[in-house]
Design a protein around this nucleic acid. Structure first.
Lengths: 187, 187
DNA sequence: CCCAAATTGTGACATTCATCACACACTTCA
DNA sequence: TGAAGTGTGTGATGAATGTCACAATTTGGG
């Protein structure tokens, strides 16, 4: 399944076999089960993860113990607590499997070596970071301009498959509404 | 004042005089007055802007004609409608001067040439994009976890000077509350 | 210096949404 | 197969916030 990672990277930059071998040597592979934690709040963040299959949720626990979903990470997504990862601080977020999930993992050191050793990969990660930034900005706009019902419709339109895969409680947490309100919006 | 740009870049990567000259040659310089539009919704987006002095607002106009502030861009910030800029689509956002503002401007072509010609700059922009992504994610978390009053306190804590510089109406628009509600929160 | 525009505060009321409580179906797994 | 956990719907209620209206004050430009 290493071809999944290669195929994903080659959507942005093309690689020779040797180059991909070099890239691949910087990653480790891991399988995790539903409910496993890849990143745990308060602990150090060793990796950025590339999701080969399965589904992750990136979440923040507020002071009253409520869980808020910052992001879902589906197949072909890169995810981590990036603030903690780059700054080497402890995680303020957690990253947990919603389904059994298969990931590639890269440490900060390997990430830096990879970028330094192959300019194409620095370019690739720049593209990814830009898209991530744009995606987050779109989400901010949806909070500024849409009410709960409209945010649901918007998500339904952009990620119809997601709503089949995850419980409504998680969708509500992602949209920033209570599960009861979401339930009433749908019915 | 080109030293302002150099100083900013050198916080992340060091440059020789020749390298900075190369970097600088990719930018143009512009002064704009309060209320001038650097980016106008519906038109093409020619540049990313680096703010030397002054203050910009990045805003979205919703279907009912209300204005929502996606971001402020202060001194040393990079701003654009990045989605439109990279994809060469027309702007969905506008970028407008809140004060008289001085910026450096770079086109997509020059941006790509600069990254290709000097790896350090690709690295610099990667750092910036990552920080932008992280910043947007923090803002999402504030929408998920804080009420209007807490979001105001949070902003007050992070950018105390901003509240002195801009009318409360704009702060309200940035926080995602009506100006009346913000007025009542403060008093 | 003066007028128009911008900014801010505040009352009255409507709407959205959260919270608490409970019921019920469905899964999971020992 | 039975018990515990998980997911979902819904009623009652209150809190948070938006909307509309109006007045007072400040600012900016000619």
């Amino acid at each position: 399944m290493q071809s999944k990672l290669r195929q994903h990277i080659e959507e942005i930059v093309s690689l020779t076999d040797e180059e991909f071998e070099f890239v691949h040597s910087h990653f480790t592979h891991r399988k995790a089960k539903k409910r496993d934690l890849l990143i745990q709040e308060g602990k150090s963040v060793k990796h950025v993860y590339f999701v080969v299959s399965g589904l992750l949720k990136l979440l923040y626990n507020d002071s009253s113990g409520k869980e808020h979903i910052v992001s879902f990470a589906m197949e072909d997504w890169w995810e981590s607590d990036f603030l903690a990862f780059y700054s080497k601080n402890n995680a303020t977020l957690s990253l947990q499997c919603v389904e059994d999930t298969e990931v590639y993992c890269i440490t900060l050191e390997d990430y830096q070596n990879l970028c330094a050793g192959l300019q194409k990969m620095e370019h690739f990660f720049l593209e990814k970071a830009n898209r991530g930034h744009i995606g987050s900005q779109q989400r901010i706009i949806s909070f500024l301009t849409l009410n709960a019902s409209e945010r649901y419709e918007h998500l339904l339109h952009r990620h119809p498959a997601l709503l089949q895969r995850v419980p409504k409680t998680l969708i509500a947490s992602y949209l920033g509404v209570s599960r009861e309100t979401l339930s009433r919006l749908i019915s």
